[in-house]
Structure formats: structure tokens, C-alpha cells
Design a protein around this nucleic acid. Structure first.
Lengths: 215, 215
DNA sequence: GTAACCCAAGTCATCGGACGAATTGTCTAC
DNA sequence: GTAGACAATTCGTCCGATGACTTGGGTTAC
């Protein structure tokens, strides 16, 4: 339909009416096209102002996958766990290679907090913080955004709140401790292995406890 | 707006008019919403028939990233190379671990063909085939689709056709040979290292030869 | 002179109706 | 029973009109 005006991250689009006769289509059709681009995060339309090309930053464009991933059936989500496992392992490995004292402190604090709480909600939040912190330390913003999308969807299953929740939480916390120790000790290989195993464990839980074609 | 009718991969949507008064919006607005979902690959609208929910297979949903990635500025593409490097390395490693004689034959044949040709176009095609074959052997369809999106964009730069094209091709072919040998010899670690290095090399070329903010 | 306020033009958001195009299922003719 | 024509359904596009929001400029008060 229309290219990105050849890479303009600023204002960019003429008014709707103007584009209409330039392209020879009605306003309705033009708006549908614009909304498609907006859904992909390429374009942003501000009421009363105009249509703008976004900054086209990868980490924001990946955000458009969020809705898609949320709609995925469980089988589809599990298929993506291969990718998640690899990327989480990479992030942990890189985080370990680049670790500094600030990261050490934060990760150990998060571990301690997770081990201390019994609250399901809080535990899930801390878990997300822990993994996000590692991703930020070890990966590009793009990687962080991508993993965040996958993690958010997984989190919606509330595994800590299931019958075996306490057991899962204990096992999970042990894995977190292993990962944190590897990063703190600047051991990339161990961090990658531990993170990969942790994700695989999560995948196994999901596969086991939600066997049916649930949302 | 509307959820996926709670996971129906088949027909699913009532007619436009029906949905309109059910949701209390005009047909135009409803259509815009549908087109947004269509852009994300969640929904497919067939003229004269109706609107259907897609199979929601991850590898197809990732296809919606294709347009987005094609519109990314070079800087954004380079940011994604971290992800690509990790995933290509993983695919190569897994391919090596699962290698069989059929894969061995195909990869070696592709390598030989790449070394034999001088045609820029053909070389690029063979290059794509080579990497896709490895991805298919080592990764899930989701991974294959994702890597394909990134690779297609990179390929649009036609690096083999540049002044230093012949040199690049020679270096590239040597890397391919190293990767193929590692896979044929069932050496996952070597395959991962070689594939990662190859991607890093490609990234370096891109960074070097297209320094400006080109599309 | 400065600042705050008001106002009008520009722009997107939504609505309602109408017509054309493609598909699908039925019904008739043979 | 089969093949072809037909009608109903549904999406695709267009047009015109109204409301809501943003923006920038001009005016007014101090």
C-alpha cells in the first residue's frame, strides 16, 4: 500500500483527505490500511493531530506480538518455549559475563525476597522482576521485550496458585538461586545451563497441568 | 475489542451487520477492528464468505513480523542480530545433534553448489536454502519462520553484489563449509560456534558497508 | 511587555446508507 | 442424477455528514 515514506520517523503523513485522492481510494479504505499499520506498531494516529510514523524501534514493534501471543492456544505457546529457552539461556550467560556489584546485589535481594514470601501474587511479580533484570543485564532491549511478551503470557497461567503451588514455588526458587549464584560467580556456562533448565522445567509444568486445549 | 471467541480455529465470526448492533458500533469501525486483527494474522476475511479465525499457528503469526522487519531502519535490524545469532547457533547445534545421512547429503551438496557458482543471484538463493535447511533440521517451525523473516530482510541488501562481493562470497562459503562439516561430524558445539561466528560476520559486513541511516 | 485565555481552523473518529463483487447453496431443466 | 442458472448471503468500497480533539494564533487582562 504505502511504504514508510522511505524512512521518516517523524511526522510524515498528509491528511486523510489529501491521501485519498492521491491514492484514488475512499477515506474508509484508507483508514483501514492505516489501522492495519497501527496494529503492527508502524504508525500511530493521534486524534485531532495527524498520523505519525513511530520511532520503529524493534523493542516497540515486538510489542505488537503481545496480543497475538495472548491469543495463542497452549500448544502454540509450548512451541515457542524452544525459542524462549534458548534466549533466556543466552541472556543469563551474557549477564554472568558482564555482572557487576549492582546486579549481584539486586539479584540476591530478589532471590531472598522470593524465598521469604508465601503470597502467590507477590511471588509471581518477583519472579518476573528477577527474569527481567537478568534479561536487561544480558540482552538488548529487543531481547528484553521479546522475552517479556512470552513471559507475560506464561504468567497468566498462575501456576503458583495451583494445588501443587507450594512445591512448584520451592523448586522454582531453588532454580532461581542456582541461576543467581552462577551469575554472581561470573560463570556464563553455568548460568546458561541453569536458566535453560529452569525454562524447560516451567514448560514441563505447563504441559503437565494443562493438558487440554485450554486457552 | 473482541476476544477470539475463546479459541475457535474454525469459522467463528457472525456477519458484519450482526456484530455491529451486538457491539453497538458502526460497520466502518467494526471493519477497522477486523482489519487490525487481520494484519496481526489472527483473523482472515474472505470476500463473499465471511471472517474466519486462523489456525493460530505460531509460525504463521510470526509472518506478520515480515512487513514490520522490512520497514525497520538498518540500526534496528542490527539490533536484532543478537537474537538471530543466538537462534542460528542453536539451530545449527540441534541440527548437528540430530543429523542423519539425508541431511548430510543435502548440506554438502548445497555447499558444493555455492562454491561452484559465480552468479550473485544464485549464490544468494543457495545461501538461503542452506540456512533454512539447517533451521528446519534443528528447530521448530516457529524458529524456522522467525529466522526466515530476519534472513529475508538481510538478504535484501544484496551483499554479494557489492564491490567486495567476491571476497565476501569466498569468506561466506568457507564459513558454510565449516558449519556443514561440524553438522556432518555431529559436533553440536562446533556447529553452534561456527554458525554464531558466521552470523556475526554478516552483521559486521552490514555494519561496515552501510554505515548511514539507509532503509 | 507578558501571560493567560479564547477561538477558529485543521484533523481524526464514528456513523449511516448505498452499491458492487465474490461466494455459496438451492432450485430448476434436461 | 447431473449440470447449469439463480438467489441469498457476505465482504469490499464509496460517499456524505457530524462529533471530538489538537493546535496555533489572536485577543484581552494585568
Amino acid at each position: 500500500m504505502i511504504s514508510t515514506g522511505r524512512l521518516g520517523a517523524g511526522r510524515k503523513f498528509p491528511a486523510e483527505a489529501e491521501l485519498c485522492d492521491e491514492l484514488g481510494v475512499s477515506r474508509g479504505s484508507l483508514r483501514e490500511a492505516v489501522r492495519m499499520l497501527a496494529a503492527l506498531g508502524v504508525v500511530e494516529s493521534r486524534h485531532g493531530s495527524g498520523v505519525y510514523v513511530t520511532a520503529l524501534r524493534p523493542e516497540e514493534l515486538i510489542g505488537s506480538l503481545r496480543l497475538t501471543v495472548d491469543l495463542l492456544p497452549l500448544s502454540g505457546l509450548l512451541e515457542m518455549y524452544e525459542v524462549r529457552r534458548v534466549l533466556e539461556a543466552h541472556a543469563a550467560s551474557q549477564a554472568a559475563a558482564r555482572v557487576d556489584d549492582e546486579l549481584r546485589t539486586e539479584l540476591l535481594a530478589l532471590c531472598a525476597a522470593m524465598e521469604a514470601t508465601d503470597d502467590v501474587e507477590e511471588a509471581a511479580t518477583l519472579d518476573a522482576l528477577f527474569h527481567t533484570r537478568i534479561a536487561r543485564a544480558g540482552g538488548s532491549p529487543t531481547l528484553v521485550a521479546f522475552l517479556d511478551v512470552l513471559r507475560t503470557r506464561s504468567r497468566s497461567y498462575q501456576m503458583f496458585g495451583m494445588p501443587d503451588g507450594p512445591t512448584i514455588m520451592r523448586t522454582s526458587n531453588a532454580a532461581h538461586r542456582t541461576i543467581a549464584d552462577a551469575i554472581v560467580g561470573r560463570d556464563p556456562a553455568a548460568a546458561a545451563t541453569a536458566a535453560g533448565a529452569h525454562v524447560a522445567q516451567t514448560e514441563a509444568w505447563l504441559r503437565h497441568y494443562r493438558p487440554g486445549p485450554t486457552t
